[in-house]
């Protein structure tokens, strides 16, 4: 009966959509336009913004600090995503072949559930130059203490390691969920043929996990580019700008120097980078669906 008549739920639909559409218009759509407008003005939070054309963008392109923050962000992303992905892949593969324990999975998830601020404080204490546990260990085995978060060479690797600690379990569980989709008989067959675990990992797990792995990688990359909390708590961009990542750079421009227009221009730049990554993510999301359905 209902299928013969073309339904039109126009009136009902608006009631369903009013809260979400209002939220979108006020806190996504309007600010997106406003942010783009700021980026071509001299807005400082205190003045009435006036149009300055591409000035913020030309300043940005010639700002060594901006390029340095981009470099620092890239260094962080490489260290963090590299270590985190390899570790998570290892942990997921081990769990996949050894156990289905929910308790183990919940334990590995714990660091992800804790606020980044707490994680940062906790590791700031463990890595403290004088009293930190890690430096106690180093002295105990006869090494010199290291200023993990105060030495310009060590600061960014330390922050990358902290976030690798916080996100490896979570990433491993995502990969593990992907591995559970791989048919078990493939492993049984390979085992009968005398293949070892390493061989099975390389020729069964890795190739069949590829869509999921690619998706997880892009999602982690997007998150990694937006590193902020850990830096804001531990180093505030120091020592010697070694940890002034792009997100922190934008935050400082806007809320320390009140250069809202300039910050908005830098944010446009970050949006472009992340936009490309998100577009790739959307494609992969579709691809991974059809592969594993």
């Amino acid at each position: 009966m209902s299928s013969t008549r073309q339904r039109d739920d126009r009136r009902a639909a608006w009631w369903f959509l009013i809260p979400a559409l209002a939220g979108f218009a006020v806190f996504y759509g309007y600010p997106a336009v406003r942010g783009a407008w700021y980026s071509v003005t001299d807005y400082t939070l205190l003045n009435t913004p006036s149009f300055v054309g591409a000035e913020n963008y030309t300043t940005l392109v010639n700002d060594g600090k901006f390029w340095y923050s981009l470099l620092v962000t890239g260094w962080y992303v490489i260290l963090n995503i590299g270590s985190q992905t390899v570790l998570a892949l290892g942990v997921a593969a081990l769990m996949h072949r050894l156990t289905r324990s929910v308790v183990l999975r919940a334990t590995l998830l714990l660091p992800w559930l804790v606020p980044n601020v707490t994680v940062a404080l906790l590791w700031m204490w463990l890595l403290d130059t004088n009293l930190g546990f890690v430096n106690h260990l180093l002295t105990a085995i006869g090494l010199d203490t290291v200023g993990f978060l105060t030495d310009a060479t060590w600061a960014m690797p330390s922050i990358a390691a902290i976030n690798t600690w916080a996100y490896t379990g979570y990433t491993a569980l995502l990969l593990y969920a992907g591995m559970l989709q791989i048919p078990q008989y493939l492993y049984e067959g390979a085992s009968i043929d005398g293949a070892g675990e390493w061989r099975m990992f390389r020729s069964i797990t890795l190739p069949l996990l590829r869509p999921v792995l690619a998706l997880v990688l892009v999602v982690s990359l997007i998150g990694s580019f937006q590193i902020f909390d850990t830096i804001a708590v531990t180093t505030q961009g120091d020592p010697a700008s070694a940890t002034r990542a792009l997100y922190y750079f934008i935050y400082e421009q806007a809320f320390t120097y009140f250069k809202m227009g300039y910050a908005a221009a830098a944010a446009v730049f970050l949006t472009l980078i992340l936009g490309v990554l998100t577009a790739i993510q959307m494609r992969l999301l579709r691809a991974s669906r059809s592969d594993l359905a």
């Binding site: 639909a13 997106a32 937006q226 970050l270």
Partner: peptide
């Protein structure tokens, strides 16, 4: 079923492409 459904949905989802910091600055002002 209502006119413009898929278009409205596409616009909503496009917000996934915008990093939080971009809307955070104007939202703070708002």
């Amino acid at each position: 079923r209502f006119p413009g459904r898929d278009l409205v949905f596409a616009v909503l989802i496009s917000a996934l492409m915008v990093p939080p910091i971009f809307t955070l600055l104007p939202n703070f002002v708002l």
